[in-house]
Amino acid sequence: MKKSTTTIAILFAASMAAPAAISAGGYGAAGCGLGAIVFGSKPGMIQVLAATTNATFYSQTFGITTGTSECGGGVVKVQAEQKVYAYNNFGQLQKEIAQGRGERLQTLAYLMGCDAKAVDAFGAAAQKNYSAIFSDKSVDSDAMLERVRSAVQSDAAVASQCSAL
């Protein structure tokens, strides 16, 4: 009996220490969300309260999607950055897509989560689909962005290296 109690105590202590050692991102073992804002990254049982708070208010899921609640950049935030970038650089992007290379096209590839090895292939995929991307004269930056995204997604090798399409 005494041996099993000692074993349980050791396992409990180890389980409480392990999450504190692996937590990162400025929040504790419970992860990002309202719990991270309220309770911070303090180790120990407080993380149970943080996790309960996250689960009760669904703040972690919302935070990951939107990039709020200490959760960094979310899908909505990334797509908004892509839209603003495409709008502000529309004319130059049209020229660079025609060439299949250029500084602004490279930046668009990075905004779409492409790693450094995929940037040239991203440009080539966009260039190959230039006529589909700019199929009519009334195409705007939003349509261009969606068509570039579709063109890159249709190339499985490139799409696998771009995480924010």
Rank of each mutant, 00 (worst) to 15 (best):
S141W: 03
T61M: 14
P19K: 06
V139N: 05
I64R: 07
A116N: 01
L111I: 04
T65M: 03
A116P: 06
Q92I: 10
A118D: 00
E103L: 06
F12C: 07
A30W: 00
S160M: 08
F39E: 07
T65F: 06
K2P: 00
I46R: 06
K83H: 09
V76A: 12
G113A: 08
G33T: 07
R101M: 08
L105Q: 01
L105C: 01
L93Y: 00
S138C: 04
N88E: 04
G102C: 04
G63S: 02
S15Y: 15
V78M: 10
E70S: 11
K137Q: 10
L34A: 13
F57S: 07
C162W: 07
L93A: 02
G91P: 04
S23R: 12
E81N: 07
K83R: 15
S138W: 09
M45V: 14
Q94N: 07
Y27M: 14
A18P: 05
G73R: 13
A156G: 13
Q153I: 05
D155P: 04
G113L: 04
D142G: 08
L105G: 00
A121K: 03
G72L: 12
A132D: 10
V78T: 15
Y87H: 14
A116G: 12
D155C: 08
Q106R: 14
T68A: 10
A13C: 12
T56I: 13
V158M: 13
Y130E: 12
Q82C: 00
I37G: 05
A18S: 15
L34M: 15
Y58W: 12
Q127A: 03
R147C: 03
K137M: 15
T52S: 14
S131P: 07
I46C: 04
V139K: 08
G74Q: 08
T107Q: 10
F122W: 03
A9M: 08
T6L: 10
C162P: 00
N54P: 02
V84W: 12
A18L: 14
M112E: 02
T65Q: 13
R104M: 06
A157V: 08
A24I: 15
D115M: 03
A14S: 15
S135D: 10
A121N: 01
L49E: 03
G102V: 05
E70Y: 07
S150F: 12
K95L: 15
T107V: 09
G25V: 13
T65A: 10
Q161K: 12
M16S: 10
A29E: 04
G31R: 05
R149G: 07
A143F: 08
Q47D: 11
Y130K: 06
E70V: 06
G31P: 05
M16V: 15
T68G: 05
L165R: 06
F62S: 11
D142R: 11
E96K: 05
R104L: 08
L105R: 01
Q92C: 07
A118F: 02
D115W: 09
K3L: 09
A17T: 09
N88P: 01
V76Q: 14
S59A: 02
Y130G: 02
D155I: 11
R147G: 02
Y85T: 02
V84M: 05
N54D: 12
Y58K: 10
G74W: 10
G31E: 09
C114S: 01
A50D: 02
G44R: 03
T52F: 04
I133R: 03
S135N: 07
I8W: 01
S141E: 05
Q161E: 11
Q60N: 11
M112A: 10
V76L: 15
M112H: 02
K83C: 06
D115G: 05
V158R: 13
S4M: 15
S160P: 05
